[in-house]
Nucleic acid binder design. Structure first.
Length: 510
RNA sequence: GCGGGCAUAGCUCAGUGGUAGAGCAUCAGCUUCCCAAGCUGAGGGCCGUGGGUUCGACCCCCAUUGCCCGCUCCA
């Protein structure tokens, strides 16, 4: 068994060599953490997206889809919490090479002083016993007053600096307070730099008259702001869902591991609106439903696991990840979150538009609760690809590289191969190609020996190779070769489409 | 952002201070009735980019970009 790191590298180079994933703008030396999908990659990616869409929208009568724009009104991100929650001032300690959030350092420092007050109080309490009046002590004891004064001074200056975005003063404050790095113990700090999660750009034809807007960091908000539009025009009754796939953009501090963490990526999200109080039930429902979706692709169950969040985001009351065992370990692939009424309430407040649902059963209006399923399309792509990649040693001692992709997702469903480039075999093969193309992505190839063509299609995951030989001209039969087993059957041409269609179905889950 | 490593043909890699090679792949032709066959021929590289040292740099030095590993961050 080769080590995981080498295995991952092989997958990356295979992805490039066979037209799945290219580094972005490669002829200009690439662009960090951005990748392009090639001729085979785009098919696989489309197929994953399509299968997700079918599973969510087509198979659920109470789920509909939308496609909201990437540009959104700036207030959207104020309401969602992204503007406030993801603007972190960062600072590095040059000696320990550790990075900290500058605000956390200062807050910790204040907490330390706070701790001293608590200690004084505890000491005094011991001294005075039952007669101790904490409030009085805190307002009269000089030492406590001094500490409190310190905290007030720091916090005043600190929050003023943050408000004005005065990062130099934040650094100055850290120096003035003599804050040291917990690891190196030194005060050798870099400048404070602002980290912004969201990419911004200017909307407007002239720079001076333009407004700053953001590229969405998640697709979910496009659903929330359209909640009322869809509910009204679709006459949707709770519970119902809105699904959407699309690009999102995050300015990651460290974006790495191939397409696992990219700055531009694609999400597939579904927000499910439920009656308050029902959210736990639906949260459990969607956890199970989404796991079944993954298993329906025939990937072993032990590659997946749930990871329940201990620490919850500002909008959630329950959250679990579906993790997948990537070549670099178990990592988040999909999130199922119970988002409460946080988002709709926030938008209701910021927009001053009523985002409520009138429930005829209870005769009440309320803001619905939301259960979200959110999966990274690129991560799914990587999960499928890394699970499929295998190198096999054959009985004759030769080796082959096979992408054992779920047939449903493979870029090509069938390769149409005349055994030889003469005697009318290509003509016959093209007839069959024209027939199958109506239903499936097919690839015609007549160059090179048949074995070589088989291997080429193994490498891009084509599940079926249809070979046309001399017998085909006589009795209208062909051989169909199965990718994983390499076994061949001879079947009548007219049955081909039905057989392929039947074999590429997903695995039904209980 | 910091530390370390890497960058030569489409891919995997050799290489020497005196202006570049192999295997595979690609293309053309011949041969071949089922798992990377053979023969013949062809195309393809200002040796990541920009400076410097030198008579002369793919090679030495500096910078820069990208990738990989580790740290940091992560809804």
């Amino acid at each position: 068994m080769i080590n995981q790191e080498d295995f991952f590298k092989k997958i990356i180079s295979h992805a490039k060599e066979y037209g799945f994933v290219f580094p972005s703008s490669e002829i200009y030396d690439g662009l960090s953490a951005v990748y392009d999908y090639g001729q085979n990659g785009v098919e696989l990616k489309n197929n994953i997206r399509q299968y997700w869409w079918k599973s969510m929208v087509q198979y659920h009568e109470n789920i509909v889809g939308i496609d909201a724009a990437i540009f959104m009104h700036p207030t959207t991100w104020k309401a969602s919490g992204h503007v406030d929650a993801f603007n972190d001032p960062l600072i590095d300690n040059k000696d320990s090479k550790k990075r900290y959030r500058a605000d956390v350092l200062v807050e910790d420092h204040m907490a330390k002083i706070e701790g001293k007050i608590t200690k004084e109080v505890a000491k005094a309490q011991k001294r005075f016993g039952d007669a101790f009046d904490e409030t009085q002590f805190k307002t009269t004891n000089q030492r406590v007053l001094d500490y409190q004064q310190q905290i007030d001074t720091i916090s005043q200056r600190f929050y003023a600096a943050l408000e004005k975005n005065d990062l130099q003063d934040v650094k100055q404050l850290i120096e003035d307070l003599g804050i040291v790095c917990p690891v190196s113990g030194s005060r050798n700090w870099t400048e404070v730099r602002q980290f912004n999660l969201m990419f911004s750009t200017k909307m407007g034809s002239t720079a001076d008259g333009a407004n700053e807007i953001f590229l969405r960091p998640e697709t979910a908000q496009g659903i929330f702001v359209n909640y009322l539009n869809v509910q009204k025009t679709g006459r949707m009754k709770l519970p119902f869902g809105i699904a959407q796939t699309g690009k999102a953009f995050r300015n990651e501090i460290v974006a790495r591991q191939f397409i696992f963490r990219m700055r531009e990526f694609e999400q597939m999200e579904m927000q499910f609106f439920v009656r308050p109080g029902d959210e736990k039930m639906w949260y459990e429902y969607w956890k199970k439903e989404r796991m079944n979706w993954h298993l329906s692709l025939g990937i072993p169950a032990d590659k997946y696991r749930f990871h329940d969040h201990e620490k919850l985001a500002h909008y959630a009351n329950a959250a679990a990840d579906i993790e997948f065992e990537f070549p670099f370990g178990f990592k988040e692939l999909e999130g199922v979150h119970s988002r409460t009424d946080f988002d709709l309430s926030a938008h209701q407040k910021h927009s001053a538009k009523k985002l409520q649902y009138f429930d005829p059963e209870t005769n009440q209006s309320y803001v619905p609760y939301v259960v979200e399923t959110s999966i990274g399309l690129d991560r799914m792509f990587l999960a499928i690809l890394s699970n499929a990649f295998s190198e096999e040693k054959l009985e004759d001692g030769s080796e082959r590289v096979v992408l054992k992709l779920p047939a449903l997702l493979a870029p090509y469903k069938a390769a149409i191969l005349p055994l030889m480039k003469k005697d009318g075999l290509p003509e016959k093969a093209r007839e069959i190609l024209a027939e199958l193309q109506e239903d499936f992505m097919c690839h015609y190839e007549e160059k090179d020996a048949i074995g070589k063509r088989y291997r080429r299609h193994d490498a891009i995951g084509t599940p079926y190779c249809i070979t046309i030989d001399h017998q085909s001209l006589e009795d209208n039969t062909v051989t169909i070769r199965e990718r994983d087993s390499m076994a061949q059957d001879r079947i009548p041409v007219e049955e081909l489409a039905a057989i392929i269609r039947k074999r590429i179905r997903p695995v039904k889950q209980a």
